[in-house]
């Protein structure tokens, strides 16, 4: 298939503009989920209503499609009378769903630290904060980097779904270009390459984190 270089030269800046929005969405989602997911994981570890609430939340957000969650947020807010922008709705839905996944990753990480590690720390006189910051969390962080990297890659790809609520990110811009030109294939190929570049960057970042934080087991 012969690529139209002129066309690509006009397409690229447009897609890169979309990429800026994609990156913003993805970075915000990842950053918020790192905190929110941890809060949910801690809540889930408690006994009683808070634990059930957190568990129920995780089940619901993980077991319904992201696209539907986005619509529910987007149209729900506008029905409630205070419309949320497409970007904000998309961000909220992305955080809701991925917060559930990230909470599960944290839970796995926390469970991977043996009770004996806690005992060893306590036997040395460590109190809760010191125990967590010195003994537990460094081990949790080391173990969650690979799944967290995967989740980040999945978040980057998932941002494409906010096109459905008219956010001008890579996917939406591609759709617009497809409608106004005949080069459907080139447009989507270009979009795919940009996603690939973004996910590769995430995977490289993950690799660097691994090198920094993991230890021989």
């Amino acid at each position: 298939m012969p690529f139209d270089l002129n066309f690509l030269a006009r397409l690229l800046p447009a897609l890169l503009e979309g990429a800026e929005v994609t990156v913003e969405l993805a970075v915000l989602t990842i950053a918020i989920c790192l905190v929110w997911g941890f809060v949910v994981a801690l809540a889930q570890a408690t006994r009683g209503p808070l634990g059930w609430l957190a568990g129920g939340y995780i089940q619901i957000v993980r077991n319904t499609p992201l696209l539907i969650q986005m619509y529910l947020v987007y149209f729900g807010f506008s029905m409630g009378g205070f419309g949320l922008s497409g970007f904000a709705s998309g961000l909220l839905a992305l955080c809701m769903q991925n917060g559930g996944y990230v909470a599960e990753i944290y839970r796995g990480g926390l469970q991977s630290v043996s009770p004996r590690q806690y005992e060893a720390g306590r036997a040395l006189g460590m109190r809760r904060w010191t125990l967590y910051t010195t003994v537990v969390l460094p081990q949790v962080i080391a173990r969650i980097i690979p799944p967290m990297t995967n989740q980040s890659i999945s978040i980057i790809k998932d941002t494409s779904q906010v096109a459905a609520i008219a956010v001008m990110e890579i996917m939406k811009i591609s759709e617009v270009w497809v409608e106004t030109s005949a080069n459907t294939y080139d447009v989507f190929l270009g979009a795919a390459l940009i996603y690939l570049a973004l996910t590769s960057a995430a995977s490289l970042a993950g690799r660097l984190c691994e090198r920094r934080f993991t230890f021989a087991q």
Partner: peptide
């Protein structure tokens, strides 16, 4: 507890720290 030393059957060293850190961690942090 800080005045009582305990050694376990299963060692329970902190796997993410060097040997030196394992030993120095509690004196520093506690």
């Amino acid at each position: 507890r800080a005045t009582i030393g305990m050694v376990f059957q299963s060692f329970n060293l902190f796997p993410h720290m060097t040997v030196l850190r394992n030993i120095a961690a509690a004196p520093v942090r506690v």
